[in-house]
Design a protein around this nucleic acid. Structure first.
Lengths: 226, 226
DNA sequence: AAATTAAAAACGAACGTCCGTTTGTGAAGC
DNA sequence: GCTTCACAAACGGACGTTCGTTTTTAATTT
């Protein structure tokens, strides 16, 4: 009764969406025609409508497919953060964000398309309640910091982590998508280092900061260190 | 011999560009037609081509007109910063950025149009060499901080100011354009306060921070009472 | 294993609409 | 009275989508 296997259908959809994505991010959604997409996907105009109801349906499918990839990637990055305001951990986190922005540049361009042409309707959930999500994610870590008395009074660690997360994120977006070209004046690696230091110093009190530094000297936390 | 006075021409161009801008930012550049623009500007389709060579010419004119406005606004904001890492000054600066983003939301949407459809060619200069510009802008202020020995060792104040500037800026862009909806979990005013505090603490050393606080709290409303 | 079959998939022409731009023709201003 | 501005009609093409037909497909029957 049905004719194409699910695998083949998936392969075809992938080919179409890859073609569409490449066109969308280089010339925008409205400036890309269904004929362009068909040609680049090596199929016919009419056949696109066997897979998607409308042109916008293609965009939505691309975004949905990406979303799960990005979500998994973010979870992985968060799982790697055991001590949120340990400078070395924060630097590692910053490098992860750099990789994520680099590797999924297309996705973030789609986000801007969404902002402009769909009032960010597909991506809105990316930022709403962000600090709440992070507070839950790091509930035990933040609790520990508070219990230790390592935090500056009046500074919420969930706020601090949201801030440094968004700062890394915005920095690399500007660098990769806006042609920032070292807009902070130093290399990406140095930006990560300096930001991590500023945030640790801004969130941890004198005791907490000293403990953090001390805890990291003798310990051999990362297999990467020599 | 020209026929319309320069004033009238300017007025007409303004009317056309205002109409075009409103359409561009609500539905995107390619999704806006010259007919739409003509209708909203209360003129005829053909007449648009007496003022602009192409549709893209309208966009370029809008951007150019805005650019001078924004540049002046930024200069004004910077001029108001006498002591870059005084918490109260930094908070005032944050509120300025909030106002600027609020009042010129259109401009920043045009920036995203530029990123997507023109590879950011019109806006690139906004970010290149940003920290260098700020270093020049605040040369004397930064020098003074260094001379006083108020700075944390290894932290460049020009870097710190670039970072906090971009942080404020990105935060409000996400709030206004991406539907962030208090994505830091607290009000804009509180975000400004907390970020300013974190950055002051991250950039100034213990002496510098104490001096800054003392210099700015002449009354007995002491934040350090506990 | 080969032939049959009916539904799904591929296709491209066709549809109606809208696009950016050009052109020609009066109206208005120095 | 010549130049410029305003306008609407017109042009050629491209748009997203539909539709009818042909081809492919995999299960079913020989």
């Amino acid at each position: 009764m049905p004719k194409l296997s699910a695998d083949v259908i998936e392969t075809n959809k992938c080919r179409i969406e890859t073609a569409a994505k490449e066109l969308f991010i280089t010339r925008g959604f409205h400036a890309t025609s269904m004929r362009d997409i068909a040609a680049r996907a090596d199929t016919s105009l009419g056949n696109l409508y066997n897979y998607y109801r409308t042109k916008e349906g293609i965009l939505e499918s691309i975004i949905a497919r990406y979303q799960t990839t990005i979500d998994a990637r973010l979870q992985e990055m968060f799982a790697d953060v055991d001590r949120p305001f340990d400078a070395a951990t924060l630097k590692r986190f910053g490098r992860s964000i750099k990789s994520m922005v680099d590797e999924h540049k297309d996705y973030w361009l789609l986000m801007y398309i969404d902002v402009l042409e769909f009032e960010n309707s597909h991506f809105r959930k990316m930022f709403v309640g962000l600090s709440t999500k992070l507070r839950k994610q790091f509930a035990s870590e933040f609790g520990e910091l508070k219990a230790e008395g390592s935090l500056v009074e009046g500074v919420d660690p969930a706020f601090g982590f949201t801030a440094v997360y968004m700062q890394f994120f915005s920095y690399f977006l500007v660098e990769k998508l806006f042609g920032g070209n070292r807009h902070f004046g130093i290399s990406d690696e140095q930006v990560i280092d300096k930001l991590a230091d500023i945030y640790c110093r801004g969130v941890l009190n004198a005791d907490g900061y000293a403990n953090m530094v001390a805890a990291h000297v003798p310990k051999n936390r990362s297999p990467r260190s020599t």
